[in-house]
């Protein structure tokens, strides 16, 4: 047991794919629930990108060119929906299985271990998020909101966002005691969604507020996706990627530790 604990969380999850298989089995019958996750960001895009966009008109892009407000806001919405999807999947769904259905207790009586569960569930959240991101990017292409071929990299970037938030969301869920505790999680995610430059550039904030907001996770995600969508590459993007990798890695490590404590006592 001690030896297993000392192994790095990422290094040992040989049967994580079985968790993914279980979730596919579940959603094979309830796929309609999955489809709904695609529409949420689409409605935001139509309502805000085009509705508000009609009021705003064009905005100045990072390189000085005028771009439509829709093209500006779309990558922000993609990043936000990748965050929201991952959080949703890794909080409510995990909590139900952890505390009520005792799904993981049953699984731990089989050769699967804690790391298989942690990696498997986060992988599933990632797969789900990837499907949504593909759908959203396709809509962006159809609506003519794509400014640069680099947007193709927005897909792996969205996956990385999903990984980072799913890991942190699942870690937070291990401390949740009842359904009402989820309010604390949404007290964090809603301001992130509203104030992380999803709808307007960071430059509207005065210093030091701008710096503070710019180091919050969703700001890094939006910076990453917007830069790729608008074709504005810079070394800062590597910092964004590293930020998200560390965030996901730490989250996964915490999940493993916490599940071990909760389930193998």
């Amino acid at each position: 047991m001690i030896a297993t604990r000392m192994l790095p969380a990422l290094g040992f999850a040989p049967r994580a794919d079985r968790l993914v298989e279980r979730n596919i089995m579940n959603y094979r019958r309830t796929w309609i629930v999955l489809v709904s996750g695609f529409f949420e960001p689409l409605f935001y895009l139509l309502g805000i990108g085009f509705g508000i966009g009609a009021l705003v008109g064009n905005v100045t892009g990072p390189d000085g060119h005028a771009i439509s407000y829709g093209a500006f806001v779309a990558p922000g919405l993609l990043a936000s929906s990748a965050m929201n999807g991952a959080i949703y999947d890794s909080t409510f769904n995990i909590f139900f299985k952890l505390r009520y259905a005792k799904t993981y207790d049953a699984i731990l009586s089989t050769p699967l271990g804690i790391n298989d569960i942690a990696v498997g569930e986060i992988t599933w959240a990632l797969i789900r998020g990837t499907l949504y991101a593909i759908g959203f990017l396709a809509v962006m292409v159809v609506l003519g909101l794509v400014q640069s071929p680099w947007v193709i990299l927005a897909l792996p970037a969205a996956m990385l966002i999903g990984f980072a938030f799913a890991a942190v969301g699942m870690a937070a869920t291990t401390w949740v005691r009842s359904w009402t505790d989820f309010d604390y999680i949404f007290v964090v995610t809603l301001p992130l969604f509203l104030f992380s430059s999803t709808f307007y550039p960071l430059s509207v904030y005065p210093e030091p507020l701008r710096t503070i907001v710019s180091i919050t996770p969703l700001s890094r995600c939006i910076d990453l996706l917007r830069s790729l969508a608008l074709g504005e590459l810079s070394p800062v993007l590597l910092v964004d990627v590293a930020y998200l990798l560390v965030m996901g890695g730490v989250g996964l490590w915490v999940v493993s530790r916490r599940l071990d404590k909760l389930l193998l006592k």
């Binding site: 049967r15 298989e21 579940n26 049953a106 699984i107």
Partner: peptide
């Protein structure tokens, strides 16, 4: 009972078998 509430009776057995490879 720790049955998988999201799966059917038969699926419960199949996925459990899959956990055992």
């Amino acid at each position: 009972d720790t049955l998988d509430m999201e799966l059917t009776v038969r699926e419960n057995l199949i996925i459990y078998g899959r956990y055992f490879d």
